[in-house]
Design a protein around this nucleic acid. Structure first.
Length: 580
RNA sequence: GGGUCGAUAGCUCAAUUGGAUAGAGCAACAGCCUUCUAAGCUGUAGGUUGCAGGUUCGAUCCCUGCUCGACUCACCA
């Protein structure tokens, strides 16, 4: 990528010179070079520990000897020894200029060619039909969506699959509950809520009437056997739910290439079972069909229940085979909660036993649960928070703030209600998505209304605000000073040095995030960048009518930060706002 | 009991995968709106990185043991 290669000049000067002085290759030197933890320690540091053994000298002595032989012009302004480290200080002006101009000139839709010609299949979101889209589903959805955007940005061909939970025993339960207590017109008017009520009531009454469970199993078996009534009800429930889910996906700005739910693989299961039989992997146990994994210290995988009905592991196997057949992916990732870790280990093990080498390309990407103060979220107990309620609440807080601000500025009538609502919605979604993505995947999240809706500090709102301020400066600039021309601008002041350094990290952070499948890396990065910029523009007035050249110069920083912030937010699935 | 993951400032979390004096935000306190949007900025205070060992020049990070918590361990997904 463009700006990376320009920055490489700085590093290359170090490696080329050091290579002549010490018994290490350029690559080894490059790997050893690190960024010091503190500003006043310079911009690059070369640690001399590893040389100590080879040269049989103390690291500080080695550093002393080397530093006198290094030439610093033009890329560095100073080279200093601090203990066992050689610290290099950039020529700030040259550095800022390199970084800013190359970012601004760069107009690619992707940041790397790492993924060129490679396909990643990503299975995420996958909500259960007939259950509400809760705050818990947000995790898989936001992490999966962000990862797919990151991979696309890295050059991969990405296939997004929504593995809808549209098959299984819970449909038996729903059918039973509906036949007992449901009313068609109620369901049509408020499908998800009414379906949820049926589901909850089923489990409530189960305590007194254990026979309900057998009934449910029977109805699911009927569904698998293509019973007319069962199929009709199932398909109706599914339509109602999908309509609701798609509404949420629209709000979140998430889409999928394939809506291949569990039911989609129904007609592919027999083939898989045949294959397993051929490979002699199948056993009977207690009336159920299983694959015994005792040898690998895992519980058995259940393929069929006593009554012959399939289970989710069966469908996951069929899904994996079918997806391989369709895409020959270089990698397939399942963005699914950590509680299913064992399940995926088992499924992958079975695929391995079936001699499918490509199983090494399959990865479970687990994430932590959302917990309440008094324990786990539970659909059955109705202990659940609807994502839509969270977004709605976040939105109404944002709307209130927008109106306050307009009032203060005396511009109350200036904005249409529609525009206000639109902005408030984006702000609300930003804070909800960001509060999810800023945490390490694997951490459990304690659900806390105050924290999720907090407009201050390390939040999506903070980043939106920074982006809006950047956009505002650009607007004001062209209005007051004229068109923005960035050609041939020279940098003369070092004020934006810290920001330039932050900006130069963008590419490696994206790639790192993709490699460890961790969107929070980007979230943290954007917060750092936002903070650097907030400090910068508070201290340095960009538009200065008395000094137009200086204005142009500072404008480069604004342009570059806006570009990176905007791209970064988009990678998290957040739409950047130009005005707040 | 077995397995997996986690434990860092009062609270929520970082720490570029083994490097220099462990950093942010929230809450608290003290400042900053005749200057491009104060959803902001500056400063103060806050630490035996759960405990005990080990590996080495060097450990929040790797190894062992323990404590606490979450998840999971055959007919739910």
């Amino acid at each position: 990528m463009v700006y990376k290669s320009m920055i490489d000049n700085f590093k290359n000067q170090i490696t080329k010179q050091l290579k002549e002085l010490i018994p290490l290759s350029e690559e080894e030197i490059s790997n050893l070079l690190e960024v010091p933890p503190k500003q006043d320690m310079g911009d690059y540091a070369f640690p001399c520990f590893t040389l100590a053994k080879v040269l049989r000298k103390a690291p500080p002595k080695i550093a002393e000897d080397l530093v006198n032989q290094l030439v610093l012009e033009p890329y560095f302004s100073e080279i200093k020894v601090v203990g066992p480290y050689i610290n290099f200080y950039y020529n700030k002006i040259l550095y800022i200029q390199s970084v800013l101009k190359s970012i601004i000139d760069w107009d690619q839709s992707k940041i790397s060619s790492i993924g060129d010609g490679k396909t990643i299949v990503i299975d995420f979101s996958s909500p259960n039909i007939a259950k509400p889209f809760s705050i818990a589903h947000l995790r898989s959805t936001s992490i999966g969506n962000s990862l797919s955007l990151i991979y696309k940005y890295m050059g991969y061909h990405v296939v997004k699959i929504n593995h809808l939970g549209d098959w299984g025993t819970s449909f038996g339960k729903l059918i039973v509950a509906y036949k007992l207590w449901g009313k068609p017109e109620e369901l049509e008017s408020n499908p998800i809520k009414k379906l949820l009520e049926l589901y909850i009531r089923f489990h409530k009454e189960l305590d007194d009437k254990p026979e309900l469970d057998d009934n449910a199993k029977m109805w699911f078996k009927k569904l698998e056997d293509k019973d007319d009534e069962a199929t009709r009800l199932w398909s109706w429930f599914k339509d109602l739910s999908l309509k609701e889910f798609n509404r949420m996906y629209d709000i979140l700005g998430v889409d999928f290439d394939k809506y291949w739910g569990e039911s989609f693989y129904q007609d592919k299961i027999e083939g898989v079972l045949d294959l397993l039989n051929q490979k002699r992997l199948v056993n009977e146990s207690q009336g159920a069909t299983i694959v015994d994994l005792g040898e690998y210290e895992m519980p058995p995988v259940l393929l069929k229940k006593q009554d012959g009905a399939t289970l989710y592991a069966t469908r996951d196997l069929a899904a994996a085979l079918f997806r391989w057949d369709q895409f020959q992916f270089d990698e397939m990732i399942y963005v699914v909660g950590g509680e299913q870790e064992l399940h995926f280990k088992q499924v992958f093990k079975v695929l391995e036993l079936m001699d499918f080498q490509w199983v090494s390309r399959c990865h479970h990407v687990p994430f932590g649960l959302i917990q309440f103060k008094d324990g786990k979220m539970s659909t059955r107990e109705g202990k659940i928070i609807f994502l839509e309620d969270v977004i709605e609440k976040a939105k109404s807080l944002a709307l209130q703030k927008i109106e306050e601000t307009l009032m203060e500025k005396g511009e109350s009538g200036q904005l249409s209600n529609e525009e206000k609502n639109q902005r408030a919605l984006i702000v609300g979604i930003s804070s909800v998505i960001f509060s999810d993505l800023k945490n390490h995947r694997q951490r459990d999240i304690l659900f806390d209304w105050d924290e999720m809706l907090n407009p201050k500090g390390e939040t999506g709102i903070y980043l939106q605000y920074a982006h809006a301020r950047l956009s505002g400066i650009l607007r004001n600039f062209s209005r007051r000073i004229g068109d923005i021309k960035t050609d041939d601008i020279q940098i003369s002041e070092a004020a934006s040095f810290d920001i330039a350094k932050e900006l130069s990290l963008f590419q490696e952070r994206i790639i790192h995030a993709g490699n460890i499948k961790e969107p929070s890396v980007i979230a943290k990065y954007l917060l750092d960048l936002g903070q650097s910029f907030s400090t910068y523009y508070r201290a340095n007035q960009v538009i200065n009518e008395q000094n137009i050249p200086l204005s142009y110069e500072r404008l480069l920083t604004v342009l570059a930060v806006k570009k990176i912030l905007s791209d970064g937010l988009k990678l998290l699935g957040i739409q950047p706002l130009d005005e707040m």
